[in-house]
Structures are given as C-alpha cells and as structure tokens.
Design a binder for these strands. Structure first.
Lengths: 238, 238
DNA sequence: TCATAGCAATGTGGATACAATATTGACTTT
DNA sequence: AAAGTCAATATTGTATCCACATTGCTATGA
C-alpha cells in the first residue's frame, strides 16, 4: 500500500546509462569486441534500444577509464594499449595494491576474512570448470580487497587498473596459463589474517610482479603498428 | 609555408568542451564556487555561451575526477569531500608520488632537471607576490614530476589527486600558511639529480606527510552540514 | 595506366525540443 | 494556527535534428 506502482519500476537509479555502461564494459573485457573494433554510436544505440546520447555518455566514461579510445571526429574504438602502457599500468597497480594491503593491516574483521575466503573458494571452483569466469573472479578478488579498505578513491583506481590489466592480459598474455595463482591469494589472506604487515605487503608485491611477468613475457614486436609494418616492409625489401 | 591556412583555425582540437572544462575546473579549484554550490546546466551554459550538452559533458568529467557531485535528478554541485576523503586522498597520493620519484631515478636528463628547477624558481617568485598563484604552482610541480615519468596513467592519477588535494586544503587547511614548502621541492630535485633513490623517496614521503598534516590539522567539526547547523543552533539557544 | 580532384555516404559534434522528476509555494482543512 | 496536500515552476534526463568532418569511390585528365 505504501508503495506506489511506480516504485516497482527501478528507473531513478541511474537507469539506462549505467546498464549500457555495464554491458559495454563486460563486452570489452570479455573480448566480445577485439581491440581496435570501431564503436559507432548509432549502431550500438540502435542495438541496445537507446539513443546516441546515452551511448556517447558511456563511451566518454569508458574513455576516461582507458577502455575505449576516442578520436575526435573519427569515432570511438576499443582501446589497444601498447606494451609500454602495460608496464605502466602494472607499475601503478603494484604501488596501489601494496597500499591496499598496508591499509588493511589491523582493520580486517572476522566476517571480512570469511568473505575473502569465500571468494577465493569460488575462484577455486571456477578454475577447473569455467576458465573465462575464472579470470573475472581473479580480478574481482583484488577489487574486493580494495573495497575493504573503505578508501573510495583507492578502490576506484584499483578497479580501473584491474580492468585495464585484463585488457593487457588478453592482448599480450600467454593463453591464460594461470592468470592469478589462487594459492597466492590464499597466502595473502593468511598473512592479512595474522596482521603480518611485512609479509602481506611483500606477498602482494610479488603477486603483482608475477602477474606482470606472466602478462608481459611476450615482449615480441606485436604491439606497435610501426613494428608490425616494419616486419612486412623488410620482407618486401622496403 | 609548411602550414596551411586552415592550421590556424584550431577548431577540431576539442574546441568547446575542453575550454569549458578548464574554466569550470579553475573556477572550482580557485574557490570561485564554494563547496556545495549548485551548478545548474542552464545557467552555466548560458553564461559561457554553450549549450547544456557541453556543460553536461564537462560536469560528468569533473564528477569522474571527484570535483563535482552528481545527484540523479537533483543536479550537480561542487564536491564537498569529507575529512576522511582527505585522509584517503593523501594516502593514495603518497603511494603514487613515491612511485613517481622511484620511476624517475636514473631517467632524468639534464634538460629535465633544468625544467624542474625553473619551475621551482617561478614558485619562489610567486611565493611573495601572488599567493593564489603560489598554490597553483606548487601543485603543478607535482604534476610536472609525474609527467616526466612518461607513465600516462600515473600522470593522470597524480593530476587528479593534486586537484582534489587542493580542494581538501581549501576546505580544511589552515589559511595557506605554506602549502608546499619550496625548500622541500628543491631538496627533492637535488636528490633526484644525484640519483639517490633512497633519499628521494624518503623526501617525497615526508613531503606528502607534511602537506597532509598541514591540510588536515583542523580536525574540527566544520565539515558536515549538521555540525555547521549545530554551531549556529547553539548560538541561538536551540 | 596512374594520379588527382570532385562527390557521395557514413558518422561524429553540437543544439534544441520534449518528457520526467523534484522542489517550492500557496491553499485548504482540521 | 499548523500541518498536510496539491499545483506551479524549475531543472534534469533523453531523444531527435542539423551541421560539419572524414572516408571511400568515381570520373576525368595527363
């Protein structure tokens, strides 16, 4: 009685833009669009049943997060970060995630630790069955850690960096051998649970470095257009 | 000769939105709008001679940077970060700026060092004459350092954090006694110039901590609306 | 045959018009 | 007189429309 019929329609809570945002973001991170794919506003809008206005907002937002590139008068396309971008992203990520761990020391309650362990459990379950969900969950573990700090901006940055790391991994990583070692996550939780600051920070540092080397091992030429062209040009004697 | 006449017309290079962006950002950071000021799209657009479309884009962008708050169906207003936000921002800033210094070790060329010293010189000049420009320049020093790393995302984050720090300082800081000690900047450059990683990182850490304590010393009540009202209410005996 | 200029098509940049929602003030009722 | 309700206003959310830039094709000329 107290609720008007309009209450059932959850429209006021950032209705369309946010939905489209999530859709596009997932699509990009799941590699439904490969890097460099053009993202015309009207096609997407028509497909999703919204106007170009919404799509443009979303593209601008995704551009801010580095997931799409926005060339003036030439349209948006899925971002294609370079290997150097990859190194930069992981460098920042390492610094921030160590800060996350450092901030968490002495502040984790028992329920929080249980939440972390539950997450790692689901990571373990997905590891064997669903490999695409596994990548997703591995990233979410880091996001969850960041959120537990209660530091909003730190959480936002880590979320963004995890997304971009995912792109880097899909571009340059080996065919996801073991994207985030679940055992490393467990060790980290253990160190956090006993408030071992030194160990926890060190673990996180090594963990990120491990991801970095797994992701960026292929330091071959396949990152830059000019490099690619150079290879072909040599073959043609140019 | 090399430049065509059309080159002089700089219209395609992000014409209006960027200009409006800079205007609003400066206005907010210079405290032309005090925290909490409503930012109606109509008025701003009319005042600046652009349509709501542009203003909306800019507000969204500034919202992404934490400078304006964007309440659905209730309009935008200048962000009013809490003291806790302040602590969080400075914590992240400390971690990232140490990374900046760490990344810079062994990579600074002589021209770069000269550029840094020139900047600090202008800081010194402005320190006595223009106090508002002094704050601006002190922040730009940190942005400049970040840009010299060549790490785009690190540079972006530091820029954002410096802006938000400026807001925090204007809200909670003491009447800018000495926002960024220029001497500390000089010491930092010296350590960087001789590639003393330990010293440089330590200096930057202390420098940020110094700013933090200068900014957040006033842990008084003047951050929340209810607290503000409480003060007035007491005076009126309510 | 190839290069270049013109033209058409696609798609973005921006502005205006319309619909939905919140806020404010006045009015009615108890 | 106070409180609650309703209507008017103002402001945001969204869609459509026009203008311009870019791209690819075609035709013409050397």
């Amino acid at each position: 009685m107290t609720s008007k019929p309009s209450d059932s329609i959850q429209k006021s809570a950032v209705p369309k833009s946010d939905a489209v945002y999530r859709i596009l973001k997932r699509a990009i991170l799941d590699q439904a669009f490969s890097a460099g794919t053009k993202l015309p506003e009207d096609s997407i809008g028509e497909r999703l049943g919204v106007s170009r206005t919404i799509v443009r907002q979303v593209l601008a937002r995704l551009n801010g997060e580095g997931l799409v590139e926005l060339r003036p008068n030439k349209g948006a396309c899925v971002s294609h970060p370079s290997l150097e971008d990859g190194h930069n992203i992981f460098a920042v990520r390492r610094a921030l995630e160590i800060l996350v761990v450092d901030s968490l020391i002495g502040k984790l309650t028992a329920p929080m630790i249980r939440e972390l362990e539950a997450h790692v459990d689901s990571e373990d379950r997905a590891r064997l069955t669903n490999s695409s969900a596994s990548i997703q969950l591995a990233g979410e573990f880091h996001v969850l850690l960041a959120q537990l700090t209660g530091n909003a901006i730190l959480s936002r940055y880590v979320t963004e960096l995890v997304s971009r790391s995912s792109m880097i991994l899909s571009l340059y990583g080996r065919p996801h051998s073991s994207d985030c070692a679940v055992s490393e996550h467990r060790e980290l939780i253990a160190a956090l649970a006993r408030n071992d600051r030194e160990k926890a920070c060190a673990l996180m540092g090594h963990h990120i470095e491990a991801i970095t080397s797994r992701a960026l091992l292929t330091s071959s030429s396949e990152n830059d257009l000019s490099d690619l062209l150079a290879a072909y040009a040599r073959e043609e004697g140019l």
